[in-house]
Design a protein around this nucleic acid. Structure first.
Lengths: 326, 326
DNA sequence: CTGAAAGCGCTTACAG
DNA sequence: CTGAAAGCGCTTACAG
């Protein structure tokens, strides 16, 4: 059916070896034979079979990307940048949306192993899973501490949390609430830590609301509404992502609160999407493209075996974008 | 390095054939040998090599997904659903972000062919490219007419455009502007057609603004600002996606226009993200998950060779979500 | 119920 | 400058 290297060889009147040579531009071949082969390939509309190739070379040029979900703008944009950079470097991307579910992550991981990926980029937050089978598999994590041997690329979460909280303090907020994801074991929740530390320094008590999953709009709303009954005095909100911030603003409006007059709100992430759809939102912008670049950079070094520091952690700079919600 | 089937066979004291049998649960094997083999696999932490497998079976179980960019919430969510469904069916996804650039699409297409994908899902809009090499490759398109032989899955764009325009008319808008993407050759711009037809019916003249690329925020803003100088009488806007709608609302605020009092605005798509971040926006919601399901459904039929109607076109129902911008 | 052999479509030493 | 042969890690008729 599909033409293979033998078909090309026969048509060009050379050996399969020679065809392979012109395919890979390897060893010496006369221009004459080269042209004959190329003509034959064009005539047959020949495509080399990368599967056969990687079986021999043991290099798939395949990278796995495990994200919670590309539905979320942060991960959607991150995935876009990761894939684009991979493509420009000749790597192909196997996409996995784990929804942060442990069983799915495990399945995906198995799948990626079976498919002989050269490396994996993880943006998901389950722990321990990676360890037991990390048999010389190159892995890089984005924003999550997964294990001692996996390098982490993130933006400066502590600094971001500090900037956000300090802004609210500077704007004279007296009762600053943090809306965060659920605190997991072993994870360094730096944004939250910075919030706590900053309030501590001026003798204020943290008020923290945890939202179980970014991806369930219902429960998100309910928890946020609790803020108004439990802490009606709230006049400042730091949400650790823009989606939480937007949800809070929606709820606040329903409760007749004016933003920023009654309550000041700052989010986190600063994705293109949210900055276009809700340009008023004050937020801490993460350098998403830079994070993607750095993650791939490190992963490729691991793949090439150049990487030696397993405790490596990269912190990229964030920036404050002031809108009109503060 | 990595254990292979021979290693498992040796440790279990059987032939590679037998190992393959328990791997694929195929043919008769005694429970005893089965257990021996499974023990050996566990002991060696063996993962079958899917690359070798698909070289023989000529089935990669790989699907290509070509989208403009997962940064855009519509395509981000679509990609999430597509990939999730694929995973649940045992298919793996090779992700491609083409940014609608012809050269990139061509490269991605070549890559997918070389990787022996079983099929391709296309959400990108370049034409003609697919034809010349569509040698029995299963393809399904989402929302774009690509060629006569490629089935299209979309929501009911004409009905959506009609609903949107009629709503504005019903709300007594006199000067309704359409903000749309650039009109391409050969493409049936049904949302636009519905807008034109609906205005026609009541004797109004269409006013259309075209925005070259969804993905360039700068030029988007400039073109939208032109509306206010060229058509200051505008009191209704139908944007063919929510991002355009949001951009217009931002610009309108800057020009001191009140939404919906001065100008009513309706968008299109109704993604989870935009409905969370900007819940006030009136929009036409596309059934994204259903689109994904149907596309995969059709693609799998093509792959199985069951598909016979190349002119196939699926139109899924849309729904109007009224917020407070109309 | 189990195994030896051939083959999937490539690539790469090794000869010449 | 070019080719024959072996092998990448599997699977599958075909025997037994």
């Amino acid at each position: 059916m599909k033409p293979k290297i033998d078909d090309v060889a026969r048509l060009a009147g050379v050996s399969p070896t020679t065809v392979s040579r012109v395919l890979n531009d390897r060893g010496y071949i006369s221009n004459e034979t080269k042209e004959k082969v190329q003509d034959a390939m064009a005539k047959l509309n020949y495509f080399p079979n990368d599967i056969a190739r990687s079986l021999y070379t043991k290099r798939s040029n395949l990278l796995g990307i495990i994200m919670p979900t590309t539905s979320n703008p942060f991960f959607g944009e991150l995935t876009f940048h990761l894939e684009s950079i991979c493509a420009s470097l000749g790597y192909k991307v196997l996409l996995c949306n784990s929804l942060n579910q442990k069983d799915k992550e495990k399945k995906y991981l198995d799948m990626l192993m079976r498919n002989q990926v050269d490396g994996i980029i993880v943006g998901t937050h389950n722990l321990g899973i990676l360890n037991y089978q990390k048999q010389n598999l190159a892995v890089v994590s984005i924003d999550r501490y997964l294990s001692e041997t996996i390098p982490v690329v993130s933006s400066d979460n502590y600094e971001g949390g500090k900037l956000a909280t300090e802004l609210l303090v500077r704007k004279s907020c007296e009762h600053i609430v943090l809306i965060d994801g659920v605190k997991e074991i072993e994870k360094s929740y730096l944004r939250r830590e910075a919030y706590i530390d900053t309030l501590d320094k001026i003798g204020k008590t943290p008020i923290i609301y945890e939202i179980p999953e970014v991806f369930n709009v219902q429960s998100q709303q309910e928890i946020i509404e609790n803020i108004f009954s439990e802490h009606p005095e709230v006049d400042g909100v730091f949400a650790t992502n823009d989606i939480f911030a937007a949800s809070f603003i929606t709820a606040a409006k329903r409760y007749g609160k004016k933003i920023p007059e009654d309550i000041k709100v700052i989010g986190y992430d600063g994705t293109e999407t949210v900055r276009t759809v809700l340009p008023d939102l004050t937020t801490i912008r993460q350098p998403i493209e830079m994070i993607a670049k750095e993650a791939i950079n490190i992963l490729l070094k691991e793949i090439e075996g150049e990487f030696t520091d397993p405790l490596h952690e990269t912190k990229l700079p964030i920036s404050l974008i002031e809108g009109s919600t503060t």
